[in-house]
């Protein structure tokens, strides 16, 4: 039977042999993926993973509530990602305004973004869209990107994201919405720039 977070936490507290390995098995992929999506570089994602797993494991012994484990882990990982931001990308964080992301009354018709479920089965077409989406996500200001990755890619609830980032629910919703609008705008600009294909 699959071990629950509470059982895993018990083993971590006792420092059982194999507990760290079980912890890596359960959360390694998640943290690595998160680091890759937020930092955009494999080397940074590796460092985020190592830093997050080892630091968290040491501190988890003192975590009282097992249900907080996931949010807590993402908090450590997102701090590690922010620390990892590469040289040259340290410009002040941009804010995204709703006005710049809204369709104007004089804009042409909305470009038709295809439904990913209806893309032709060709692997190349899917890979092209994935690359385009990843690029658009990668260009978001970090504090918007982290929220989008947590909510839409890692499937955390709004409350979990709020807990992980120490934000209130309305701030999480605002950042998520603007991040999505910005990605939508990027996809649309690409479609317009290249005809119907990404």
């Amino acid at each position: 039977m699959l071990e629950t977070d509470a059982q895993l936490l018990e083993r971590i507290r006792r420092d059982d042999p194999g507990a760290f390995e079980a912890f890596v098995d359960r959360y390694g992929d998640r943290v690595y993926r998160f680091g890759l999506r937020v930092c955009g570089h494999r080397e940074d994602a590796k460092d985020v993973l190592q830093e997050t797993l080892i630091q968290s494991y040491k501190a988890l012994r003192n975590l009282e509530h097992p249900e907080a484990l996931r949010s807590w882990l993402y908090r450590v990982a997102s701090n590690a990602c922010l620390m990892m931001r590469r040289k040259g990308k340290h410009e002040p964080e941009r804010e995204l305004s709703l006005a710049e992301l809204a369709p104007g009354a004089d804009d042409g018709p909305v470009a038709e973004i295809p439904d990913p479920g209806e893309l032709p089965d060709a692997q190349l077409e899917r890979a092209r869209w994935q690359a385009l989406v990843q690029e658009a996500v990668g260009d978001l200001p970090a504090h918007y990107r982290i929220v989008l990755v947590m909510r839409d890619m890692e499937q955390l609830s709004t409350q979990e994201v709020a807990d992980a980032l120490g934000l209130d629910i309305s701030a999480v919703k605002m950042r998520l919405h603007r991040a999505r609008l910005k990605v939508r705008q990027r996809l649309e600009q690409t479609l317009r720039g290249r005809g119907a294909r990404p």
Binding site: A111, P116, Q130, V133, V137, D152, R180, R184, E188
Partner: peptide, 15 residues
């Protein structure tokens, strides 16, 4: 178009 954008973001393959 926003709904489809979200679907694209969610469809990115996990590493």
């Amino acid at each position: 178009s926003l709904r489809r954008t979200v679907a694209h973001v969610r469809a990115v393959s996990p590493a």
